[in-house]
Measured scan of single mutants.
Amino acid sequence: KYFGTAKARYDFCARDRSELSLKEGDIIKILNKKGQQGWWRGEIYGRVGWFPANYVEEDYS
């Protein structure tokens, strides 16, 4: 189950295995919004990890 999707506004390079690298334009499935302050958990291309919420724009459609 996921909470919708978000589109990456910027590139983000994961610093460890718990984080999710993003490329601008990627569409991420949002799995959890209750991580550390400002971090969401998501899935993209079969990978799961945490990413900074301010790097994405949530899709409300």
Rank of each mutant, 00 (worst) to 15 (best):
Q37C: 13
E24K: 13
D59F: 13
V48C: 10
G49E: 01
G46I: 02
I28P: 02
D11K: 07
Y60V: 15
N32K: 09
D11R: 08
L22A: 05
P52S: 00
N54E: 14
Y2W: 07
K23R: 12
E43M: 07
G46W: 01
E43A: 10
R17T: 13
S61D: 10
G25Y: 00
G42E: 02
N32M: 09
G4L: 09
Y55K: 07
K33T: 07
G42I: 02
L20T: 04
L20Q: 00
K1T: 08
E43L: 05
I27D: 11
I28Y: 04
G49P: 02
E24H: 11
S21G: 07
A53F: 06
I44T: 13
E57A: 13
I44P: 05
E24P: 12
F51S: 01
K1W: 06
G46P: 07
R41W: 11
S18D: 11
G4R: 10
W39Q: 08
E19F: 04
Y55G: 06
S21P: 07
E58M: 09
D26F: 00
Y55A: 15
G38D: 08
A6M: 03
Q37R: 13
E57R: 11
K33E: 06
R15N: 06
E19W: 06
G46N: 11
Y2L: 08
F51T: 02
S18A: 15
Y2T: 11
E19S: 06
F3Y: 14
G25D: 05
V48I: 14
P52W: 00
D26E: 10
D59T: 14
F12P: 00
Y10Q: 15
N32F: 11
E19A: 00
L20A: 02
F3M: 13
K23E: 04
I27G: 03
E58N: 04
R41S: 07
R41A: 07
K34D: 13
E58H: 05
L22N: 01
A14M: 01
Y45S: 15
W50R: 04
Q37L: 12
Y55W: 10
S61I: 10
T5P: 06
S61R: 13
G46Q: 08
Q36L: 13
Y2Q: 12
A8I: 05
D26A: 05
E58Q: 10
S61P: 15
S21Q: 04
I27V: 15
Q36K: 15
K1E: 11
Y55V: 12
G35W: 04
I28T: 08
E24I: 11
I30G: 03
Y2M: 12
I30N: 02
E43I: 05
I28C: 06
G25M: 03
E43P: 07
E57Q: 12
D16C: 13
A53L: 05
R9P: 00
A14D: 00
R47N: 08
D11Q: 07
G25F: 02
